[in-house]
């Protein structure tokens, strides 16, 4: 596999391999010299058509720890905001000599379009496209779960039988999509929870269970509860009546938190709306692995960049 566009493209072996390489990358972060010479002389472009400081910083840190040169190309204030096309931007990057492109775009499929066209001949990493996918987020989530469960013995393991509940705006969530395909590939039992307005059509054909009520899902003794960010504008579009009603029905409040096992992980891809989908108590509790997720993001992105950029040919074998 030459590009990372969707977690649906990953086999179980490939997914485990990425997580294993990320373990090695995580070790680097514990050393005095937190840097590897692996991608010295390579140039990674962070092509961000949509603002996301968190994701961009994470990719930037990952590339720099591998000694790659990093060019940040963000839409705001650049020629892109003046109407330059993806094609022109890609050809410009090719002329500059980019060896890898990390792309974030508000249009679903933009990374696939970039990968399919001859505008630039470099591996493409999808850093979030529209409401389609966000593969490195799902990988870092899986990595976080695996590390928590298996510690130092995590290498080589899948997530067979791990029960993961994903709550919130599944319809618009690229994080949810990438997680569903990846977690299912790794053997986890995934349960999606949302009001019917926020569930995608055909979700019952996905490799998941579906619950309409969070309280029902919490009775299944989950190992992981992943809360998705809910965006305010969804209210205007009549996906739910009010923030208060959403928080009451689907928020992880203190009372619901109390019903979880002490070792159940609470995850959130960030940024969090405290008091809406997640209470401050849940976000700051010992069950929360939100900061682990952030730290692990760098390891996962190092692994992906290493696998796609270091070799001469096939990328993720």
């Amino acid at each position: 596999m030459r590009h990372l566009l969707s977690t649906a493209d990953l086999t179980r072996e490939q997914a485990v391999r990425i997580l294993d390489v990320a373990e090695d990358m995580a070790d680097v972060a514990t050393r005095e010299v937190k840097k590897l010479p692996t991608l010295r002389g390579r140039t990674v472009v962070n092509l961000f058509f949509e603002d996301s400081t968190r994701t961009r910083i994470s990719f930037e840190a990952a590339a720099k720890r591998l000694s790659a040169d990093v060019i940040n190309f963000s839409a705001k204030g650049s020629s892109v905001s003046k109407g330059e096309s993806l094609k022109d931007t890609a050809q410009t990057l090719a002329a500059i000599g980019a060896d890898g492109v990390v792309i974030r775009h508000s249009a679903s499929g933009a990374p696939a379009v970039l990968a399919a066209n001859a505008w630039i001949d470099a591996p493409v990493v999808n850093a979030g496209d529209g409401t389609h996918e966000h593969p490195t987020q799902a990988l870092l989530d899986a990595f976080t779960i695996r590390r928590r469960l298996h510690g130092a013995g995590a290498r080589g393991r899948s997530l067979d039988g791990v029960r993961v509940v994903i709550v919130g705006d599944i319809l618009h969530s690229r994080v949810a999509r990438s997680n569903v395909w990846l977690l299912a590939t790794l053997g986890a039992e995934v349960r999606l929870v949302a009001p019917a307005t926020l569930l995608p059509l055909g979700v019952r054909d996905w490799p998941v269970e579906v619950d309409l009520h969070l309280d029902d899902a919490l009775t299944t003794n989950p190992d992981v509860v992943m809360m998705l960010r809910i965006q305010g504008e969804r209210m205007r579009d009549a996906f739910f009546p009010s923030a208060r009603e959403y928080a009451r029905e689907y928020g992880l409040d203190e009372e619901r938190l109390g019903r979880l096992r002490a070792d159940t992980m609470v995850m959130h891809p960030g940024p969090m709306n405290r008091g809406l989908e997640i209470s401050a108590a849940a976000a700051d509790s010992a069950r929360s692995v939100v900061l682990d997720q952030v730290a692990n993001g760098v390891s996962i992105r190092m692994a992906v960049l290493y696998l796609l950029l270091s070799g001469a040919e096939e990328g993720i074998a």
Partner: peptide, 13 residues
């Protein structure tokens, strides 16, 4: 077209 494929591809239905 609105349906399972659009939902998977993340394209408006």
């Amino acid at each position: 077209n609105d349906g399972p494929l659009a939902a998977r591809l993340g394209l408006g239905g």
